[in-house]
Write a protein that binds this DNA or RNA. Structure first.
Lengths: 309, 309
DNA sequence: TGGCGGCCATGCGATCCGCGCATGGACGGG
DNA sequence: CCCGTCCATGCGCGGATCGCATGGCCGCCA
């Protein structure tokens, strides 16, 4: 049984003759006649009565017609939904981001996406960069805002769309000698007690370690802490200095001093998708919305940034 | 979009790879691959992610899969119903009969049909032979128990299955001179006041008139009445004699005398169907049930018939 | 009552779709 | 580093199915 058979049956029922149905379906009369014959052979019984004035459905034909109407309606619905998804008037996108991005540009990106594509259902989840990659691979996520850390590009099988390069700044106790400088040389941190988390759980920390490494010293990791809020508390207490990504400072504390580093280390924040999902309109739209939000956020912040005071 | 496309999508979703789906569907892998590609072209977006380890549905694919599952289930249901109707385990039959048959053999025929085919829905309507033919033609009825009267066969476009030849008997007032005979010659009715309805509304009356005609006389139609109950009342009152079909006597009155006629005029009672509906299993089954009931009824009645009582 | 027109079924030839086979490329595992 | 698995694509062919033409049937109308 094929959809054409059902369309033929429906049209014969509506028009009351095989010829008229053929006309409506843009087939010739013999073609429709044979389609009907085929359908009847499969049904093992007559479905339409042929009369010299036209055609009429039998009881079995009426029974099949009820199914046909529903099936064809559902097929139309499927077509409509496919078009809706393709044109971003429907569908769903599952996205994750990690805390500092959610505290900064991601919400306005989600907001913009929702405004542009109100019919697309957005599912958001707060996920750290590490687990996010695995969830993408599993297919549990469609788009993940992650940090590439030291990697020059995305892992194999993934695609990374750059959103923003987030610079690491140095957070100092207010009375720290280096706090008087407008810009702190990384080399000046040699020997200083620093707060740097474990590279295993905190990709950002690899960047910090590498920044010191490139200046020729191994940092004095007095505190192994990979939460920036906690790190700022330690800094405020005068116990150590900490490299903090700028986005992680969105809720700044007044009791620490923030200075740029001369080496301008950054973590590259990207929207990551599965390479195998390229071509998904909704993913592209979400990435675009995030990129717009990130650049808008960077522009605003760029003008106000690093102002002493 | 064709059903095969949906089957392919479903199987890919279930098996997790195009190759496995092809295997399950008894196609080659390239065939399924191309079916998918075609479906995706029509959907204007990717529906499955290809990975080196297999295949997985995209969001759009999942959306289409929901439709596909329902559509395919409905197609299966349609197949099942077609088979049920073809094998008389479902479906519907609309049947009519006229009063004297409903007072005699038709009920046991309906009962037998219901016992044999309990899943077939029976719709019964009491309809006189004249209108029944029109209802058949309209398609409002599937089977009609009618009388052929004088016609040797069914009207063009119809098929008539003989059920029983119902003989006309003569009903006489008890004190009528002809009541003494075991068998009444039609010729003896010449001049006698007779009850004969209008041939326009009562096909049976044509038979009565023709019976007289063939004996060379025009009957004395003292009463134009085409209801057999009313006619028997007139007979009982001694006003006239009446030819009554045997089946119309099922509730006999004690105050009239019934005798056979020498010419043995009959009305041929048939189950009529549309010629264009030959091949309908349920119609055939109903006709068979009626024929069985009629012959059983005839056999029983045949032994008791004509007994002077 | 006989021609006529509408409706449907069927034979025939051609076309195009779609399958199978064979091949190539990509990725992961041993 | 090779091999196994998985998917995409080029090619050739077989068969499904369409259009055209024809024939039969019935009803209408002159």
């Amino acid at each position: 049984m094929e959809l054409l058979h059902l369309r033929v049956l429906r049209e014969v029922a509506r028009r009351g003759s095989i010829s008229a149905a053929a006309d409506a379906l843009d087939y010739t009369q013999p073609a429709v006649s044979r389609q009907l014959a085929m359908l009847e052979r499969q049904a093992a019984q007559p479905l339409v009565e042929r009369t010299p004035r036209g055609a009429r459905l039998t009881a079995a034909g009426e029974a099949l017609l009820r199914h046909a109407e529903d099936i064809l309606a559902r097929v139309d619905a499927a077509h409509a939904e496919m078009e809706a998804i393709a044109t971003l008037r429907g569908g769903r996108v599952r996205i994750s981001a990690f805390p500092s991005t959610v505290a900064s540009f991601v919400p306005s990106g989600l907001r913009a996406f929702g405004d542009r594509h109100p019919d697309v259902q957005v599912k958001f989840e707060l996920v750290e960069p590490g687990p996010a990659v695995e969830l993408l691979r599993q297919g549990t996520l469609d788009v993940a805002v992650t940090s590439l850390s030291l990697a020059p590009g995305p892992p194999a099988g993934f695609r990374a769309h750059p959103l923003v390069d987030d610079p690491f700044l140095i957070a100092l106790p207010p009375d720290h000698p280096l706090a008087d400088l407008d810009e702190v040389p990384v080399a000046a941190l040699a020997g200083e007690p620093l707060i740097i988390g474990s590279p295993q759980t905190c990709p950002d920390c690899e960047v910090m370690l590498m920044a010191c490494e490139m200046r020729g010293f191994t940092p004095n990791r007095a505190y192994v802490v990979d939460d920036y809020g906690a790190a700022l508390g330690l800094v405020a207490a005068g116990l150590a200095a900490a490299m903090i990504p700028e986005l992680a400072l969105s809720g700044k504390r007044a009791d620490v001093v923030i200075r740029p580093l001369d080496a301008r280390p950054v973590r590259r924040i990207v929207a990551m998708t599965l390479d195998t999902q390229s071509g998904s309109a909704v993913n592209d739209a979400m990435v675009t919305a995030l990129a717009d939000a990130a650049s808008a956020y960077g522009a605003v912040r760029g003008t106000a940034s690093f102002a002493r005071g």
